[in-house]
Design a protein around this nucleic acid. Sequence first.
DNA 1: TAGGGTACCTACTTAATGGTTAGAATTATT
DNA 2: AATAATTCTAACCATTAAGTAGGTACCCTA
Lengths: 110, 110
Amino acid sequence: MEKKEKQILPCDEGCPVKASLKILGGKWTMMIIFQINDDVMRYGELKRAIPSISEKMLIQELNMLVENKLVTKKAYPEIPPRVEYRLTELGLKTLPIINKLVEFGLENLV
Amino acid sequence: MEKKEKQILPCDEGCPVKASLKILGGKWTMMIIFQINDDVMRYGELKRAIPSISEKMLIQELNMLVENKLVTKKAYPEIPPRVEYRLTELGLKTLPIINKLVEFGLENLV
DNA sequence: TAGGGTACCTACTTAATGGTTAGAATTATT
DNA sequence: AATAATTCTAACCATTAAGTAGGTACCCTA
């Protein structure tokens, strides 16, 4: 009689959840993506849209999102400065995640 | 001529993204939910399934998930002890989020 | 000339997270 | 009699993430 052992496939480096969270797991990351959505957003608009975020965190996250190619940044050579952020193709592909998050929040928490 | 101003609805306390992330935003939370899925999982199985998590974090997260009613815990009065975790109704409702996360990871990152 | 608006950056401090080690409890096995 | 197995706690320290406060730059308006 053999011991029946449950099959477990260890989920480490290649784990898709882990990989996604590495980019999206920051405290503010998904909130920012949610706010930009399929629109254009200026820095100041984002700041007003997420009042509880600090300026440091906002730019830090935006820089990180640009680095990870989820967001594009377009700065106009004007005074006062104007900078626009929008989601890339890749960034847009994260919206289904955010939408599910919104759905869950609306139906169960808020 | 009026200045056309963009309409912004500040997303603070009642924001569904924020509310969801408050419960699900931990570094390991979604990984654990992903592993339990619609199955039963013992503590040791989870540990093996997520090799990079420390015991402390695993228990800490599991306790938090039980507190937040996403997971139920059933301990059998045996020696050696046996404890089973599974998702609650509410926990099961987070699976669509995790699935989207998996999808995104598989298609774009891994 | 003082202040406002916009988009940052930098340094410092605090809070959150994570790792390590040790140990408890109880029985079967060696 | 010592060891292994399993689930968990507690204490301590290290690392990382996040918050706070200040400063820069430029032009316009008052």
